[in-house]
Design a protein around this nucleic acid. Structure first.
Lengths: 165, 165
DNA sequence: TTGTTTTATATTCTTAGGAATGTAAAATAA
DNA sequence: TTATTTTACATTCCTAAGAATATAAAACAA
């Protein structure tokens, strides 16, 4: 991305994208592939992928209540989408909402027993289906890989200008 | 993903996902962030992200014609979505379709001059907007990072069962 | 206190993606 | 040759995600 290319180079028959570009591109492809896999693995369960992602989030420190906008921010997604997913999860009883007596606008969301159960079942399916993904990887390789991902994520996170609602 | 956890461990207050899971998860977050950035950078241009991705593909060996299903396969996306995106690109003149005299079912798609121009403009916007993403990275780090991504991608690619249409 | 701004969430609209299915041409089988 | 299957692409329907906006409560300012 930060290479300056001459017109000459652009005109080559086969254009080779920069490493920067390819990294971003590969991340997109991997996300595509894992999302597809995840959808297949969760197919037929009562937890579609968007809800699994939220269940995942709620499982992290489950005793703490979360707000819609808090979840939206953590998920780095626009609030309206989160509202809709949460509405479905409330309807299914995976979450429960508590009115906030201090502030009539907001409500606090908690994972229910049913939500925990659904999450565990979905997670088991995914773990089962993806257990061989990193076969052959050394532990340090996974750590190094994750460190690269984290470094990139932190940069992108720090430099995004949306700061969702 | 391939760690076997005891019930005991699952019941801890704060559940720490395995490294495998976190890698997949981080990829998803990075894709989310870069997609958002890309959408913002291309906003107002005549090339929305899905079309940019295809223009990118067509720019690679532009002299070779491509078929709808060939593109769908390369993009690892279902064919109907590709058909729709290509229809828009044909309408805008970014692509041109040639009948195949040998086979009345298929058609061959080529990038037009207008398509090349649109692609170059969109690419310049993206490069401009993302040029600092890898500031501070050594070349070997990017190479190592890409190698990890590629290794994971190859595994996922080899083990997907969809084999789109 | 009244008017304005900010904050939390909900609703609506549009586009994109995926699943299922349809159509028509080509390949294959009987 | 005729029937069946396969292949390439198109269409339809549904869910999801993003943009814009609405509503309503709280905080703040005059």
């Amino acid at each position: 991305m930060n290479e300056i290319k001459t017109k000459q180079q652009y005109d080559r028959k086969e254009e080779v994208p920069s490493l920067d570009f390819r990294i971003i591109n590969w991340v997109g492809i991997i996300d595509q592939l894992t999302s597809t896999k995840m959808r297949q693995l969760l197919d037929g369960s009562d937890v579609p992928p968007p809800q699994f992602v939220l269940l995942n989030h709620f499982s992290h420190r489950p005793e703490e209540g979360k707000t819609v906008s808090g979840v939206a921010d953590a998920m780095q997604q626009p609030q309206p989408g989160i509202t809709k997913t949460i509405a479905k999860m409330l309807a299914k009883g995976f979450l429960r909402a508590e009115e906030n007596p201090e502030d009539g606008r907001s409500k606090t969301l908690y994972l229910t027993k049913a939500g925990k159960t659904a999450h565990a079942a979905a997670k088991a399916r995914l773990e089962e289906g993806m257990q061989h993904t990193f076969d052959g990887w050394r532990e340090w390789e996974k750590k190094d890989f994750f460190a690269f991902l984290d470094r990139l994520k932190i940069y992108l996170d720090d430099h995004r200008e949306d700061r969702l609602s």
